[in-house]
C-alpha cells in the first residue's frame, strides 16, 4: 500500500495540527518539520480547509488550526479527499478480466483492498495520536 504524496502530506498536517487544536501552524512550519514541499502542502491545506478539517487562522503569521473531531475523523476521511480507495481494483468502466487467471488475481487484489479499507476506516486521528505518543511508530500495547 502506497499513498500519493498529497495524501501523505494531508495526513502529516492533520496529525500535526490535531496534536494541539489550539495551536496554529503555517504551511511552512509543518513542511519544515516533515521535510516536504511547503508549496505543495499549502495547496493540500487549502483542500483540507474546504473539507472543514482545518481552518485558516487569522492574525499575525496566519496559519491553520485543526477543526475536526479527532475521535470521529478517520484516516479514510482524509485519504478519500485526495485519492480514490475502492474495494474494486478495476478502473471505472473497466470490465472484469476475461481469463480465469485474471479473475483469480482480481479476487486476491480485492481481498487486499478490503483489508486496507477496513483499516483506514477504523483508525481515527485520536488513535493515530495515541500511536504517535505511545510508540513513536512502534507497536502499542493494550493498557
Amino acid at each position: 500500500m502506497k499513498l500519493q504524496k498529497a495524501t501523505c502530506f494531508a495526513l502529516f498536517a492533520v496529525i500535526e495540527l490535531a496534536r494541539d487544536p489550539s495551536r496554529q501552524l503555517s504551511a511552512a512550519e509543518i513542511a519544515d518539520k516533515y521535510s516536504i514541499s511547503a508549496h505543495h502542502l499549502a495547496k493540500v491545506l487549502r483542500d483540507l480547509g474546504r473539507a472543514g478539517i482545518v481552518v485558516a487562522a487569522r492574525g499575525v503569521g496566519g496559519g491553520y488550526k485543526f477543526a475536526g473531531n479527532p475521535r470521529r475523523l478517520t484516516l479514510m476521511d482524509v485519504i478519500a479527499l485526495f485519492e480514490p480507495i475502492k474495494s474494486d481494483t478495476l478502473s471505472e468502466g473497466e470490465p472484469l478480466p476475461v481469463t480465469d487467471a485474471g479473475q483469480a488475481l482480481h479476487l486476491v487484489l480485492k481481498e487486499i483492498d478490503e483489508h486496507a479499507i477496513a483499516t483506514f476506516r477504523s483508525i481515527t486521528i485520536s488513535t493515530m495520536l495515541k500511536l504517535v505518543e505511545d510508540g513513536r511508530g512502534g507497536r502499542r500495547t493494550a493498557r
Binding site: S122, K130, A142
Partner: peptide, 17 residues
C-alpha cells in the same frame, strides 16, 4: 471487517492486526 465502530473501539484501546 465492516463493523467499523467496534473496530475503531478496539484500535483506540491499542489493538492492531
Amino acid at each position: 471487517r465492516d463493523n467499523t465502530s467496534v473496530l475503531s473501539f478496539f484500535r483506540s484501546c491499542g489493538l492492531m492486526a
